[in-house]
Amino acid sequence: MRVVLAGGSGFVGQKITELLLKEGHEVVILSRKEKPAEPGVQYVTWLTEGSAPEESIGSADAFINLAGVSINDGRWTKEHQKQIYDSRMIATDELLRIISKMPEKPSVFLNASAVGIYPTSKTVIYTENSQEVDEGILGRTVRDWEQKASSLKDFGIRTAYMRFGLVLGKNEGALPLMVLPYKFFVGGKVGSGRQWVSWVHVKDVARAAIHLLNTEQSEGPFNITAPFPVRMNEFGKTIASTLHRPNLFPAPAFLMKTALGEKSTLVLEGQFVTSEKLIASGFEFEFPTLASALDDLLN
């Protein structure tokens, strides 16, 4: 399979690329910078003046869209929130343009998304059938991102939206910052501790993406979250247990809001999100429990 990947140099994109190559697929990574080809990987310049990526791509069996400014980088100023939104709309518009120019269309398009589309709640259980949309920056961004990508169905292209939970990685994503206080023996409850964390190991994110590429009936939204969400208090206790550190020093909500601004909602609020549709499609998680995921990542 020849797969075009936008956002291939990012945290999740690197893991998906590794797995695609391991399984013998050919990868085309769209990049703003010119890079020499590597075994199995072609780099194609896009989103720069004068670039015409469709001419270099040629044909492709699948597209995966992960492109967009990271929500984990920096404080959520108004400008950064605008960049989070605009970067995803601009990149997706360009992918739609590229595909419209291709004589032979890809058979499948996977678009990154997030469980941030759902409103925060300590009691509601969300599935892919849930219709509620959060009115914050993440909810609006995800809603509009998925709607834009959905126009590919007009070309007869199977389209799926990967609604990622909190993606856990050893050196990237949110986990290193969450672990840091524990390494200095000052970890503890964050906020109320009762907020839900719908998490997923980055390896299972990559495996889920390949699964959706290969499962022909899979389309629409898929929650990419491990089957056992936990409350933040349990998340902290599991980090402490894995690292053999205490879990004694709380981080009050007002301190988190002062330090992170609106971005603090990522750790102070959450949602219980199920992955029933993904599991029903035949996917099995390698790391279904938080203890197994943290043991792999931290030990």
Rank of each mutant, 00 (worst) to 15 (best):
residue 113 S to G: 07
residue 97 R to M: 04
residue 108 V to A: 02
residue 228 F to K: 14
residue 42 Q to Y: 12
residue 43 Y to S: 11
residue 291 A to N: 14
residue 113 S to R: 01
residue 27 V to K: 03
residue 19 L to H: 09
residue 83 Q to S: 13
residue 42 Q to I: 13
residue 231 R to C: 05
residue 56 S to W: 11
residue 193 G to Y: 04
residue 258 T to W: 14
residue 137 I to A: 12
residue 15 K to H: 15
residue 6 A to K: 07
residue 270 G to H: 04
residue 247 N to P: 06
residue 183 K to M: 13
residue 154 D to I: 07
residue 272 F to N: 14
residue 118 Y to F: 10
residue 263 K to C: 04
residue 80 H to F: 06
residue 142 V to E: 00
residue 184 F to N: 15
residue 142 V to G: 00
residue 93 D to C: 15
residue 62 A to Y: 02
residue 9 S to L: 12
residue 152 L to G: 03
residue 40 G to L: 05
residue 1 M to A: 10
residue 65 N to H: 08
residue 120 T to W: 13
residue 229 P to Y: 04
residue 31 S to G: 14
residue 202 V to W: 02
residue 125 I to V: 15
residue 162 M to V: 04
residue 164 F to G: 00
residue 47 L to N: 11
residue 171 N to M: 10
residue 59 S to D: 11
residue 249 F to Y: 08
residue 81 Q to T: 11
residue 1 M to T: 15
residue 110 L to F: 01
residue 59 S to T: 12
residue 11 F to D: 11
residue 62 A to G: 05
residue 17 T to N: 12
residue 252 P to E: 10
residue 155 F to Y: 15
residue 244 H to D: 13
residue 109 F to Q: 01
residue 109 F to M: 02
residue 19 L to M: 12
residue 101 K to Y: 06
residue 141 T to L: 15
residue 113 S to T: 00
residue 198 S to F: 01
residue 153 K to W: 10
residue 253 A to V: 09
residue 179 V to D: 11
residue 247 N to D: 15
residue 256 M to R: 08
residue 204 D to F: 09
residue 4 V to H: 02
residue 9 S to P: 15
residue 5 L to I: 11
residue 202 V to I: 15
residue 151 S to C: 09
residue 164 F to W: 02
residue 109 F to N: 01
residue 195 Q to Y: 03
residue 67 A to D: 04
residue 149 A to M: 03
